[in-house]
Design a protein around this nucleic acid. Structure first.
Length: 713
RNA sequence: GGCGAGGUAGCUCAGCAGGUUAGAGCGGUGGACUCAUAAUCCUCAGGUCGGGAGUUCGAGUCUCCCCCUCGCUACCA
């Protein structure tokens, strides 16, 4: 038997977690893949009558939180509290049913982090070493790589992070960066030594090698981990110098636990909080492994924290190990990675403002498997799938038969469950297969099985033709019988869908006038029973609302303007590629076919507000010079009046000599997102005309009298 | 550059211990019906299974090479 699917025993007890969302950002649809996946799994186990505890918490520590709080002028505790409220509200909106939601900035977490650390230290798994790091004297703090910006030592690109160049992909130490600056205050950092604490991961190599092949993690993940073993396990730096928002390390003043040290411990802290609240025994869950299963659901991006550090920490500190770590892939939207700049970054809140959460729960369920695969949210597919499966197939069974029972029989089902040729029993029997799919996290297969049954139920109604029976004299019993059968089939299906659609299940329970549906009680058909009034169980997805959601999302972070025809044709290869992606994403989000939109980048109508998003300005070319190493680019220095001076790299060298440009006026896209190019930062785009197959490039120029900085509209 | 995942009908995906005419849902076509949220039921629609080579009596299904997409990573976890 697959170790990931423990044998079914009715007295299974489980603790289940989703990864802790970071308190620095909002919940988005990508996060929700995981929370919905976990929630469905948890609800399934509860539906089966098992004890299943679902805990989570906000992940609150680290430099990004500290700095953001500073910028907002509030204490980090306040920021963290606010984000937690927001997160919990979003989760509630999607019916994520945590049994406990806590915070890593909690006394429980501090106590457990200290306990684990001290235990590891006592057993010799912690060592100290001096580390040289960038230090900002003005801010009085060490700077993580991401908080250092400077010029890439390899290619000279400006404004790069301290660890790697986004322009040329070079990697380096922060100390190699030219003209390094603190990302917070802009001053130059200095190198400074400091003692750090390291967790000696290599002490656990043998144990880990065994554990990752024990069936606790997916094979794909285990394969990837082999790479790390091959490279050799390195000690893990678990301390940070103050100021740092986190927990101070025992016996080490002004040293704090690195955020990733105490984050997974948050699973335990939340458990403890739950136990204290409900009188359960924490030790029974986390200090021994024969009472509870412990399952972590995570994204594939954080697998090494959960499959190397985390089990090693637990093992070293004398706690139990997770029963399993389940990783899922990333979300794409219309085939593309979610992206703020492409306007496809959908927050949980934006979705909830326009659409029913149950749509998304079903759609994700229909596409989720146990494998580590990315999941694509294709919005057209989303609409047709939800509408046809949920409304057309499932809800329809009830909606087409409830009326007869209500109008002709006062809502009464047949006094005895009618002869149905074994249909009901087969529906019940399919529960075993569906349960197995749920258990194995093959939700897509589970949904497929349910839909096949829904089709069968509709076929049954078709064959019985209650609307014919309703017209026939003396066919009352047959009419009542066929509708009773259909509704009983519907009830079984809703039981199967309850983990995915808790809100609809509630409505159905009210409609059928029955106690909460459970896996066990699905076997008993309803007879001699009065149902309630049938009301709409689910509205169809309205494509207009999807459009509204996308528009709103774009409004939150305006995308680059639609590619003007005169975009400089010469950019680096990588940059050109990015521009194309932007186009594809935009056309994909619109209702026109992507292929058609791509072949006519200028096609498709837009509204004035969209056009107004492009800030076109008159600019005077103050200076123009050729760029060393670039054969098509000219570096232009532009005077844009009140907007100041801009540097723009334009691909017009083939048509203009630098000397001929100085002093003349032209048009610039002033709000184009600055693009890092190999030769420096380009802060806009000048407009020029060019024709397909026709040579030449013609820079736009306003009539005499225009002044630099004037808005063009 | 390294590693991982993937490229199957218009769309979303199954299939893969190699074996009869490659499947499903949606969309599309034609028909039926009118109870139902223009839902449902029946029928049809024929995609060189990314390209090439190989193994085999026989390959989406195995091997090798190549192309493309996505992601991670780049002696820094």
């Amino acid at each position: 038997m697959n170790p990931l699917t423990p044998s079914d025993s009715s007295n299974r007890r489980l603790l289940v977690t989703s990864a802790l969302p970071y308190a620095n950002g909002s919940i988005h649809l990508g996060h929700l893949v995981e929370y919905i996946q976990t929630d469905i799994w948890v609800r399934f186990h509860k539906l089966m009558g098992r004890e299943c505890l679902y805990v989570c918490a906000d992940d609150t520590h680290g430099t990004p939180i500290m700095i953001r709080a500073q910028r907002e002028g509030i204490p980090p505790e306040e920021l963290v509290a606010r984000m937690r409220t927001e997160h919990q509200r979003d989760f509630a909106g999607f019916n994520i049913g945590f049994d406990n939601y806590h915070s890593t900035h909690s006394p429980e977490n501090r106590a457990l982090a200290e306990e684990i650390y001290l235990r590891l230290r006592q057993d010799g798994h912690i060592r100290t070493a001096s580390v040289r790091q960038a230090y900002c004297e003005k801010d009085g703090m060490f700077l993580p790589d991401r908080f250092i910006r400077g010029i890439c030592p390899s290619c000279g690109a400006a404004d790069q992070y301290g660890d790697a160049c986004e322009s040329c992909s070079a990697t380096y130490a922060p100390t190699d960066l030219k003209e390094a600056r603190c990302a917070v205050c802009g001053s130059s950092p200095v190198a400074r030594d400091s003692d750090h604490f390291f967790f000696k991961l290599a002490d656990f190599e043998t144990f880990l090698k065994y554990w990752i092949r024990s069936g606790a993690i997916q094979e794909q993940m285990a394969n990837k981990l082999d790479e790390w073993f091959l490279a050799g396990l390195k000690d893990w730096d678990i301390s940070r110098d103050g100021p740092y928002f986190g927990f101070e390390i025992p016996d080490a003043p002004n040293k704090f636990f690195y955020v990733w040290l105490d984050a997974p411990i948050g699973y335990m802290a939340s458990t403890r909080h739950l136990c204290d609240r409900t009188g359960r025994d924490f030790d029974e869950i986390w200090r021994r492994d024969d009472r509870f299963e412990v399952h972590h659901f995570i994204g594939k991006d954080i697998y090494y924290f959960h499959t190397l550090f985390w089990p090693a920490m637990l093992h070293g500190a004398g706690f139990r190990l997770p029963t399993a770590v389940h990783a899922h892939g990333f979300l794409t939207i219309n085939g593309q990675k979610m992206s703020k700049s492409r306007g496809s970054f959908l927050n949980a809140r934006s979705y909830l403002d326009h659409l029913d959460p149950e749509y998304l729960r079903y759609y994700y369920a229909a596409k989720l498997s146990s494998r580590v695969e990315d999941l694509d949210l294709n919005l057209e597919d989303f609409t047709s799938r939800v509408n046809s499966d949920m409304v057309g197939k499932v809800v329809n069974i009830a909606s087409r038969t409830a009326g007869f029972l209500r109008n002709r029989f006062g809502g009464k089902l047949a006094p005895v469950y009618p002869e149905d040729g074994g249909l009901f029993d087969r529906f019940v029997a399919h529960g075993e297969e569906i349960a197995r799919h749920y258990e194995e996290r093959e939700f897509g297969k589970a949904m497929g099985a349910v839909m096949r049954l829904a089709e069968e139920a509709n076929r049954y109604v078709e064959q019985q033709s209650p609307w014919e029976l309703a017209k026939k004299e003396g066919a009352e019993a047959a009419l009542q019988a066929s509708c009773s059968v259909a509704l009983n089939l519907f009830k079984v299906l809703m039981t199967y869908l309850k983990p995915v659609l808790p809100a609809m299940a509630d409505k159905v329970e009210a409609f059928l006038n029955v106690p909460p549906l459970s896996w066990e009680n699905r076997v008993a058909p309803l007879a001699d029973h009065e149902i309630g009034e049938f009301k709409h169980l689910m509205a169809r997805v309205d494509p207009k609302k999807i459009e509204a959601m996308l528009t709103a999302a774009r409004g939150e972070s305006p995308p680059p303007p639609p590619a003007p025809a005169a975009a400089p044709a010469t950019q680096t290869k990588g940059a050109a590629k990015s521009v194309e992606k932007v186009k594809t994403a935009d056309s994909g989000a619109a209702k026109s076919a992507p292929a058609a939109a791509e072949s006519h980048p200028g096609g498709g109508e837009i509204e004035i507000p969209q056009f107004s998003q492009v800030d076109l300005r008159v600019a005077r070319i103050v200076a123009a010079e050729s760029v060393e190493g670039a054969d098509k680019l000219l570096k232009l220095t532009l005077d844009v009046g009140a907007l100041g001076t801009r540097t723009v790299f334009a691909g017009i060298k083939s048509a203009y000599a630098p000397d001929a440009l100085a002093g003349r006026l032209t048009v610039v896209v002033a709000n184009l997102k600055p693009r890092k190019m190999k030769f420096g930062l380009s802060e806009g785009m000048v407009l020029a005309a060019s024709g397909e197959g026709v040579g030449g490039l013609f820079l736009l120029q306003p009539d005499a009298g225009a002044e630099p900085g004037m808005r063009i509209k």
